[in-house]
Structure formats: C-alpha cells, structure tokens
Amino acid sequence: MKRKIFRKDLLFLLPIFIFLLLWEISGCIAQTPLFPPFSKVVTEFWFLLGNGILLKNLGASLARVLVGYTLGCLAGLVVGVLMGLNKVVERSLSPLIGILFPIPTLGWLPLLMLWIGINEALPVTLIFICAFFPVAYNTLTGIKGVSEEYIKAARTLKASSWFILRHVMLPMALPNIFTGLRLEAGMVWRTVIAAEMFAISTGIGSLLINAESLIRVDVIMVCLVLLSLMCTGFERIFLWLEYKTTGAWR
C-alpha cells in the first residue's frame, strides 16, 4: 500500500521534474540573460531570501492581501446574509450588485487611483472589491438554497431566528460560501500584483516591474514561481478548510 502511494507521488512529480530538467538544459544552451537556467533562478531565490528583499516584498503583498481579503469577505458575508434573509434588502441591492459585479477588478484601478491616490489603501480597496462581490453573491445563493422545510423543522424545535441562522442556514450555506472564498483566494493575488506593478513601490508586483526595467529575468522568474506558490497555497488552504468543515456531511 505504502509503496503504491509512493509510486503515485513519483508519477505526480515526474512532469515537474522533466519540465525543470528541460528548462535547465535549454537555459544552459541559450546562454542569454533573457532565459536563465533553473539553477540560476534558484541561486537568485536564495540570494533574495538571504538579503531580505524577497521577504520584505512578500510581506508587503501578503499584508495587503490579508487585510483586503478579510474585509472584503466579511462585508460580502454580511451583505449576502442580509440579502438572503430579507427580500426588501435583496430587491434593493440586487440591481446594484448585478451592475457592479461584472466589472473586472482591475477596471476600477484608474478610478481608484484618482479617488484614493497612490497609497496603501489602493491595493487594499482593489482586493476588497475583488473579494466582496463573489462572496456576497455566493453567500446569497447559499442562504436562499436552504429549503424552507429545514427552517420549519427548526422552528418546531423551538429554535429562535438567530439560532436558526447560526446553526442551520449558515452551516448549510457553507459549501456555496467556500466556493466564493476559494474562487477569489487566487484572484486576489493576481489583483495585488497588478496594483503593485502600476501604482505601488513595494510588494512582489513592484519587484517584478523593477526587475523588468533592469532586464533581470532571473528575478522575474523567482517572483513568478513565488506567485504561483502563493495563489495555489491560498486556494489549497480554503479547499482544506472546506473539507474540514463540510467534508463529513457532504
């Protein structure tokens, strides 16, 4: 059994290994700073890690993502729940959300640059917008998806409306809520990078754009690998949380 699992893991790693090998060989043959071999990227990664540049910029991006994402998710959750519980709120907000939701997050960038200015609030606001709409929409869908019969059953068990919301509606809406959280977990990283590339002087996006102007492809590649890890990592965290909270009963 153990041997089988080990073989499966190897099979999963094999394409990555082949990709890195081909990258290394091609980079060595090309002999140009525009296409450095994998080993050069690894060396640069250790160098940037050692002198603190990578951690400083990653920390700046991570802080923006965490603040914007948390606020956006909380606001989305509250608005989604209110819309799901109250038809008047739903009817009032639905058209507005219907108009604003389809706007790509980066479309807000020029407007927000003028309104907010170029400061820390800019990427945080962009991430907030990025997270807010899908979480609100998915929470609404989840809450409305809870059959009225479950509410009836809970009421005959003498549960108050607040208890029903906390112990029936929200848990049953969790799969939908997690879909919203997971979809945007990777997207917020793409958004923060774009904002930093255009407007902010710290963060991975800023490091990327500076490396481009200095023709440091190795640094660009370090940043891209790191971004891939962060996007995947964030999505995986929510996948894990979803499994932990809903896996047993779904």
Binding site: Y150, K152, A153, P171, A248, W249, R250
Partner: peptide
C-alpha cells in the same frame, strides 16, 4: 413536535 414528510434532518449534523 412535528415530523415533516421528508423529515428534513439537518445534513450538517450527525
């Protein structure tokens, strides 16, 4: 006490 036709046990609770 009301046992509804399709029972409606809460799926997220054991």
């Amino acid at each position: 006490g009301y046992l509804l036709q399709d029972i409606y046990l809460f799926p997220h609770l054991n």
